[in-house]
Design a binder for these strands. Structure first.
Lengths: 355, 355
DNA sequence: AGGAACATTGACAGCGCTACCAGACCAGAC
DNA sequence: GTCTGGTCTGGTAGCGCTGTCAATGTTCCT
């Protein structure tokens, strides 16, 4: 006959049910859908659970119910400040819900992403948050076949797998260039690192805006696949300057690069913004504090994470949002590093909501 | 009689076993301890699993084996750059192992930490990584009663629950002050934010070093419970300057504050380091890039995370480290912001390994 | 009053895997 | 040839929970 396993000593649902004088299944219902119980039993189960210090066994629950209460999150980087804000939003929104977050780092590799996706999906997550819209065909197929809600974050695009929340990096870059143009800048350089899909779209936006103004010149663009850093901003700017000594502005694909450019200008005694205007991207906290203060494109990263997780949890619980694609927009925050005229002569509409 | 639940369509271990012509239990063993099988069966099970695309059901495994393959990680903040480096190390080390990371954010609250700890422990994690050594008595008791390996990270102290990896914030702060002292600074201010236990210990180190040199003055210290930021660095420095106009150096409890101080100095046209020397803490990437470059105390955050996770996994798998407490040390990286004399006259031994 | 409609509750089996132990098999010792 | 000790394999039961559906009250109609 069977073995006597070491009884873990843990309180089981059956014990709670017994103390409360109800069947185990009723006790089970209490934890999943308390409204289904009569008020009397609800109170009895509640106090019994509290008295015994009952904690549900999630593994047993997952096994019996064929689903987990795990939300998988796939992000490309743990280093990038941008994602830590998004993550914070996701974790904040998940707190208090019964879902827990399972985080994985794709390291900007869509192959790695595909692998991780397969892993996640095998465990039947309650929902999935994935970064961006550039999955492999295989990943895309898996996502579409998945029987859980999915939110794509960081950007918006034409064919959402399910839900989507982000903003147009293309439009945001165009707005940044438009702002510099309005300030009178004509030789506007572009500095980009990593060149992941979203940075690429910022570059595309920059190129399109420059072409619209008949200002585009390939030699104004410096990019690298190297991960971004402040130091790299200085390095790339140095390259750019060597090619285009008469440049009057730089649009940086992110704020770290912008800070690096600012420091490099200081090192070279280039006046900012008089000689060169600087615009960054993301509006990290330090941008408002730099000397001169640095213009940037504000993106709502925390809100993006929080809303994504909230939407996802709502969808899991059957409350689908009326609007599956949410554009969080952006705003060009104009600061000293790019404002060349007096405030009273500055008419530019710099904020906008795309879509 | 029983219900026919929707067969999930998933490949189960039994199917693999059947195809391989072995019993389910043998197939099970293949995934947990392949060496226990004969070479022939091992190959048969392996190819059967691959052919069917078998993925184990972790919930069933957890339920049957009474343990999970989850490593719980408790950190106080998702915003702080410092933790993103540690986390990256943890995630990197966990990759390739069979353990997955469950992350929770205590928000610098030891009560929240206690709550999360209780939650984690109820799910029988394979191991736990907790931040710091200042748990509540209750948390401490739970940790000591836990039947899984535990690593405390970020600092080292006298009574490890189990394993411990970090460095002495106290000694690191003393080394920073010693460096400034060696540069001839005598009125050395302290700027600190958040004032979590580790920042507090940096302050303690600062105070002790200043007292040793008979230089301590309470009015040289400005702290706040507000979360850190670059902007806050400027604000706190402004306060400090109002009180101590003749200050000749500032030791900042972290690099964000140091950058804020640098910007504030620039704003006020205070020469760095000639009038005021600046030293930060952590040596984030941008410190080497600032103008002037900023001195900081380098800490091995990525390595700390990676080593912590590696030690933990080894311990889970029964390979206990010979040394349960690991001091990763620190190093004062001397840069322009605090070097007042010519390089040739600078003898200071600035790096050290405590313990 | 009779019955429908709803609200509550419970019985049963089983989710997919692994712990425990027994048994089969093999080599070497006596 | 028998026995011992080791290696490998399999049978059985059950981890703790929940889906299904039936059974039992309970209320509200006509």
């Amino acid at each position: 006959m069977g073995r006597k396993r070491t009884k873990s000593g843990k309180i089981r649902l059956a014990e709670v049910a017994e103390l409360a004088g109800v069947s185990p299944i009723t006790a089970s219902r209490f934890f999943r859908n308390p409204e289904a119980l009569s008020v009397a039993k609800r109170a009895r189960v509640e106090s019994a659970a509290k008295e015994l210090g009952y904690v549900p066994n999630l593994a047993a629950r997952a096994l019996a119910s064929q689903r987990t209460e795990v939300i998988g999150v796939l992000i490309p980087s743990l280093t990038n400040n941008v994602f830590s804000d998004v993550l914070r939003g996701i974790y904040d929104a998940s707190e208090g819900s019964r879902y827990s977050i399972q985080l994985s780092n794709t390291r900007y590799s869509i192959l790695q992403e595909e692998k991780l996706l397969r892993l996640f999906l095998a465990q039947k997550p309650a929902g999935l948050i994935v970064t961006g819209i550039d999955q492999t065909a295989e990943s895309r197929a898996m996502l579409e076949a998945a029987d859980c809600p999915i939110v794509q974050i960081m950007e918006i695009g034409p064919n959402p797998v399910d839900m989507m929340i982000g903003f147009s990096h293309y439009d945001a870059a165009r707005a940044a260039v438009a702002h510099l143009y309005a300030q009178g800048c004509r030789k506007i350089g572009f500095v980009g690192a990593r060149m992941d899909p979203r940075v690429q779209r910022r570059l595309d936006g920059y190129v399109s805006a420059m072409k619209d103004a008949a200002l585009f010149d390939q030699r104004l663009v410096v990019t690298t696949a190297t991960p971004t850093s402040v130091t790299l901003g200085g390095t790339l700017f140095t390259d750019l300057l060597a090619r285009q000594p008469d440049m009057d502005a730089v649009f940086c694909a992110n704020d770290d690069l912008a800070l690096g450019v600012l420091f490099e200008c200081r090192r070279r005694e280039i006046a900012v913004p008089a000689q060169i205007a600087i615009v960054g991207f993301n509006d990290l906290e330090f941008m408002a504090s730099a000397v001169p203060t640095l213009t940037s494109v504000r993106t709502n990263r925390y809100e993006m994470g929080k809303t994504a997780a909230t939407m996802l949890i709502d969808a899991i619980d059957g409350r689908r949002p009326e609007q599956p694609v949410l554009d969080l927009g952006f705003k060009v925050i104009e600061r000293q590093s790019s404002v060349l005229r007096r405030p009273d002569s500055q008419p530019a509409v710099s904020g906008m909501l795309a879509g």
